[in-house]
């Protein structure tokens, strides 16, 4: 496959925080419309990789291209590229001083320069897509964790992103709310969205992932299909990790 078919291309990415080397040379490609799940022990660099892809963390070394466009440290260019990359956070990070619908319209108006009416229409459509149009005028503090995360997904989708990054989207949720968020993510996957998901939700991985990446100590240990990884992991580290998370 040529690079044109790859919407995310990462080459030799390094990220050093003072003493800690969070990423030690990560290279990967993600095809258009693919769902890729990243797993690995805590501190293995999963989140850092995600945050380097939209340059929330500026990499120490290496290249990231999104849809053929190489990311540079130039702020104006970065802002334009980031608008094309949706990101969903572990702790939702909704804007608490804005209602659900205002959360979804703000960046559309400020970044995409859409009119108030157009932004509101798109926002309602996205809130319907994630199943909570009735909460449009409610502030985040009055929403459950699952509802907040769904608003956060709608907020990203309203920007018409080319890819979506999910950084442990369900790990801060109470168990009964995990399903509603995963259902939204499954729908997105079915609709052909390119998704890069850091998550240990194995049900989601089995149902939606085209590829799975196992990371450890800032490196990609294995990058294969979920079927291969679960049934015949090549590396000893992978086996050990899988035995730990799949036991229960």
């Amino acid at each position: 496959m040529t690079n044109a078919q790859h919407i995310i291309v990462v080459e030799d990415l390094h990220k050093h925080f003072d003493q800690v080397h969070a990423l030690n040379g990560v290279s990967m490609k993600v095809g258009r419309g693919k769902v890729v799940v990243i797993i690995g022990p805590s501190g293995s660099g999963k989140s850092t990789l995600l945050r380097c892809i939209n340059h929330l963390e500026i990499p120490t070394q290496g290249k990231v291209s999104i849809d053929g466009e190489l990311l540079t440290p130039d702020q104006k260019h970065l802002n334009e590229v980031r608008a094309e990359i949706g990101m969903v956070f572990q702790l939702f990070n909704l804007f608490p001083h804005l209602t659900a619908i205002e959360n979804v319209t703000l960046a559309q108006k400020v970044v995409r320069k859409r009119s108030k009416a157009e932004a509101a229409e798109i926002a309602m459509k996205q809130l319907e897509r994630v199943g909570i149009p009735e909460k449009a005028d409610v502030y985040p503090s009055q929403l459950s964790g699952g509802q907040q995360q769904r608003v956060a997904i709608a907020r990203s989708l309203a920007m018409d992103p080319k890819i979506m990054l999910f950084d442990e989207p369900t790990s801060a949720l109470d168990p009964e709310m995990i399903k509603e968020v995963l259902d939204v993510m499954l729908d997105l996957a079915k609709e052909g969205m390119t998704m890069l998901v850091v998550s240990h939700e194995m049900g989601f991985t089995r149902a939606a992932a085209d590829e799975i990446i196992f990371m450890d100590e800032g490196l990609i240990v294995e990058h294969t299909t979920p079927h291969d990884l679960f049934n015949n992991p090549r590396e000893e580290r992978t086996k050990l990790f899988l035995s730990q998370i799949l036991q229960h």
């Binding site: 929330l56 802002n79 608008a83 909704l94 804007f95 960046a107």
Partner: peptide, 25 residues
């Protein structure tokens, strides 16, 4: 910090994030 990160990840400049997200709070 997450507030600034969420704003930046949506493509806002640091000035826009300051005006619309950080300062009001």
């Amino acid at each position: 910090r997450g507030q600034m990160e969420a704003a930046r990840s949506l493509g806002m400049s640091s000035g826009q994030a300051m005006v619309h997200i950080i300062l009001p709070q």
